[in-house]
Design a protein around this nucleic acid. Structure first.
Lengths: 166, 166
DNA sequence: GTCTATACCCGGATAGAC
DNA sequence: GTCTATCCGGGTATAGAC
């Protein structure tokens, strides 16, 4: 494992444990037993590290959705499962934080392509479906539903609404 | 206008212009021509100021939804309009940032009550509908849709899916 | 490639004079 | 109720020795 890979692995680990806020040049360096300035021999700046993590997360999510097959329910379940398994990685690719200029072309689109497929080519429907999944995940991760809420039922109700023909 | 109100007004103004990140004790104080330490004569800490802004935002959103009436389309349009008009206020009440322990009881629930109504008492459906609206707003505000995307159509497609009887 | 030392920002918050 | 001065923490990043 190259030093570069080691840095990324440590950063991802740190991200999973402490969220984006816990990700600093100092903590990443400490994680592998070096000093923060040494990181700049391998990455030009912090954004480069974040962008690498985002790219990895987007690819991972895309692969998970791809593996779920074409069924709407399966895709929804896969989306939710991936987000709940890696909540901080999901946070890193949500919001305005995406370093678009540093991502490989198409990698962002790939992560929502699975949902597009399930909408049978209807773009407006596909976007609404994506928004539904994203919204459900965000609300659940942020703890916005009551503690005793049945989130699975909300997913089922949402997907059911979209499963009927337009 | 009391000094306290003046501080909140300045903070809200600052929030609208620079987002949550631009909201610091120093910038708020500068906005009304005093020094940062003076703020602590009026609020115990920064979280108290943020909580006040969140409470105002939640009440404002709730009022807007209430004024929209019972029609699903109208509520959806009102939700989107409020969020696009006050994107940074929406950011302040999204995510994990809510100071729940400092908010008046019920004020959080009131901001999503309008959507509950439109779901005719079906809780799972109501939550999915809320997630759809939240997701659409977040994706639009974050610029996650292509520049030429027709977001209105996505809203229409999403609301249409929910307007059919379960 | 890694180190130490450091520069330069930013932030929240407190002490004590007036 | 406001001030000045200050503490303490955080962060990104650079210079220069080894």
């Amino acid at each position: 494992m190259s030093r570069r890979d080691e840095i990324i692995a440590a950063a991802e680990d740190l991200l999973d444990r402490g969220g984006p806020a816990g990700l600093s040049m100092r903590t990443i360096a400490a994680e592998i037993g070096i000093q923060a300035p040494s990181l700049y021999r391998h990455f030009p700046d912090k954004a480069a590290i974040e962008a690498t993590l985002q790219e990895r997360a987007l690819r991972s999510l895309a692969a998970r959705l791809d593996a779920a097959g074409p069924q709407l329910d399966a895709i929804g379940a896969a989306y939710r499962e991936w987000a709940l398994t890696h909540p901080h990685r999901y946070a890193l690719i949500s919001g305005q934080a995406l370093h678009r200029d540093r991502l490989s072309p198409g990698v962002e689109a790939a992560a929502s392509a699975g949902l597009q497929t399930a909408a049978h080519g209807d773009q407006a429907r596909a976007r609404a479906l994506w928004a539904l999944a994203h919204g459900l995940v965000e609300l659940e991760l942020a703890g916005r539903f009551p503690d005793d809420a049945d989130v699975s039922s909300a997913w089922a109700a949402g997907l059911a609404a979209f499963s009927r023909v337009g």
